Amino acid sequence: MSRTDAQKKELKKLRNVDRAIADLRRGLPVVIIAGSEASVVLATEMAFAGELKELENLGGTPPVLALTAHRANVLHIKPTGDPAVRLKIEAWMDAPLMRALADATHDLDQPFRGPFTRLKGDLPEAIPAAIKLAKLARLLPSVLSTDLAANVAIELAKSADYSTVTLADISAFEATAAVHLKSVAAAHVPLQSAENTVFHAFRPEDGGIEHLAILVGDPNRHEPVLARLHSECFTGDLIGSLKCDCGEQLRGALKAISDAGGGVLLYLAQEGRGIGLINKLRAYKLQSQGFDTIDANERLGFDADERVFQPAAEMFLQLGFKKVRLMTNNPEKVDGLERHGIEVVERVTHKFPSNTHNELYLATKRKRSGHYL
Results as ranks from 00 to 15, higher is better:
Gly207Ile: 01
Gly261Leu: 05
Ile275Glu: 05
Lys285Val: 11
Glu210Asp: 13
Asp295Gly: 11
Ser193His: 11
Glu314Leu: 01
Phe234Ser: 14
Leu215Pro: 07
Phe302Met: 10
Leu229Arg: 00
Ala256Gln: 12
Ala313Lys: 09
Ala256Arg: 15
Ala283Asp: 03
Ala260Phe: 13
Val198Met: 09
Asp292Lys: 08
Asn196Arg: 14
Lys280Asn: 02
Gly247Arg: 09
Gly320Asn: 02
Glu232Met: 14
Ala227Tyr: 08
Thr328Val: 02
Ala253Gly: 12
Pro224Gln: 04
Arg299Ser: 06
Asp237Lys: 14
Cys233Thr: 09
Ala194Pro: 10
Leu268Ser: 02
Arg282Gln: 09
Ile214Ala: 02
Leu226Asp: 10
Leu212Gly: 04
Ser193Gly: 07
Tyr284Phe: 07
Phe302Ala: 08
Glu205Asn: 08
Gly207Gln: 01
Phe309Tyr: 15
Pro224Gly: 10
Leu300Ile: 10
Gly236Pro: 12
Pro224Met: 04
Tyr284Val: 00
Arg299Cys: 05
Cys246Asp: 11
Ile294Trp: 08
Asp305Glu: 11
Asp305Gly: 12
Thr293Ile: 09
Ser288Val: 01
Ile294Arg: 09
Lys322Met: 04
His230Lys: 03
Asn297Cys: 08
Ala283Cys: 03
Gln310Thr: 00
Ser288Trp: 02
Gly207Arg: 01
Leu281Asp: 02
Gly276Pro: 06
Ser231Val: 11
Arg221Gly: 06
Leu242His: 12
Glu248His: 10
Asp206Gln: 02
Arg307Met: 12
Gly208Trp: 00
Gly240Trp: 12
Ala313His: 10
Ala187Phe: 13
Ile278Ser: 13
Gly263Arg: 06
Val324Glu: 04
Tyr267His: 04
Ala260Trp: 08
Ile257Arg: 00
Tyr267Thr: 03
Leu229Phe: 07
Phe321Leu: 06
Glu223Ala: 14
Gly240Cys: 13
Glu306Pro: 09
Met327Pro: 04
Cys233Val: 05
Asp303Pro: 06
Gln192Asn: 12
